[in-house]
Design a binder for these strands. Sequence first.
DNA 1: TCATAAGACGGACTGTAGTCCGCTAAAGAC
DNA 2: GTCTTTAGCGGACTACAGTCCGTCTTATGA
Lengths: 191, 191
Amino acid sequence: MGEPRPERADARRNRLRVLEAADRLFTERGVKNVSLDAIAAEAGVGKGTVFRRFGDRAGLAVALLDEREQELQAKIISGPPPLGPGAPPDVRVLAFLDAYLDLLDRHVALFMDSENASDGARYRIGSYHLWHRHLSHLLEAARPDLDADYTAHVLLAPLAADLHNALCEQGYDLNRMKTGLRAVATSLLSA
Amino acid sequence: MGEPRPERADARRNRLRVLEAADRLFTERGVKNVSLDAIAAEAGVGKGTVFRRFGDRAGLAVALLDEREQELQAKIISGPPPLGPGAPPDVRVLAFLDAYLDLLDRHVALFMDSENASDGARYRIGSYHLWHRHLSHLLEAARPDLDADYTAHVLLAPLAADLHNALCEQGYDLNRMKTGLRAVATSLLSA
DNA sequence: TCATAAGACGGACTGTAGTCCGCTAAAGAC
DNA sequence: GTCTTTAGCGGACTACAGTCCGTCTTATGA
């Protein structure tokens, strides 16, 4: 628990360069056609730098998603209802699922990278915990008879990037998923 | 649609050797501490042989799981109720989820490998489709108002190996998951 | 301004997944 | 038994993720 030392100037400069380069290459060539070597080269830094900073491929994807996810997080924590506080729990759950599906749909490839580490990266990263706590609290309020903690994981499971991608490939459209998921959640919440 | 030519003797011999070697090494050292080179060496075949036969790491894992999954598939298709035909749809859904969780729990590491290809391998392999069709039919019967196809995917999502593994690591036990999932499915089916 | 230590840099290095293609051996025809 | 076709073989090869460690930069404080 020591004091957290400010980021050094060169470190900050390189972090920004890498993020910018990754963003550019991902957009240009598609997320999975870009190697970390290429990103390092494009950013004009060594490969070691990329890894020291972001840990692995998933870490980099997480960093790129961070901004977008924070937007949603902010809306949930302090935005207007139904996403933010104020609406009844069941309504907030539905609003969250909808919003998350939108986010996921816009950034599928990046989400896949961020969730696809060798092992289950998804469940270790900060934002997953935030979504989970959020749903867990709402479920606790709406259905105190359920195991809220576990049920929150169950509700998050269909938001996995893999599944979304697979369904897109087999021709599902976003609205079908939204409607379907809303129906499931409604059954769950109103029992 | 040509006629499918019988498997050549050397091919069969090598296929069995590889499966046996993989099984042995996975048990001895743990699934993720074994490289495909090692398996090829242990089996006394070239690396190319392993890949030609199984496609990739996930394919090999699928092949190893096949036998176990077929057991469950057989019980579903023609075994006694509640897993097999005869019981009411909602009961059969619960029985399936329970049985699958057991299977998953016994072979987490292998399932992770089989679902963890670079992209979403899980949703392309035959057994997933079978589970999906099964649930889809049962849901159609129990809740004709829902989008059965999509809802079946939703019910399968919490059975992802990643999630199971992550929950195990954070101290969940199998019974908690079974109970939790039963509760969710019950809400869904009885609405 | 300079000395010094904490920490970042970067690229050579390792290990693994997956590809390729010239070679070998099985199976069937005669 | 021999010939021909064709599937299968295997290991060298490529490309990428991730590690390591000697070198260089930054921040600090005297």
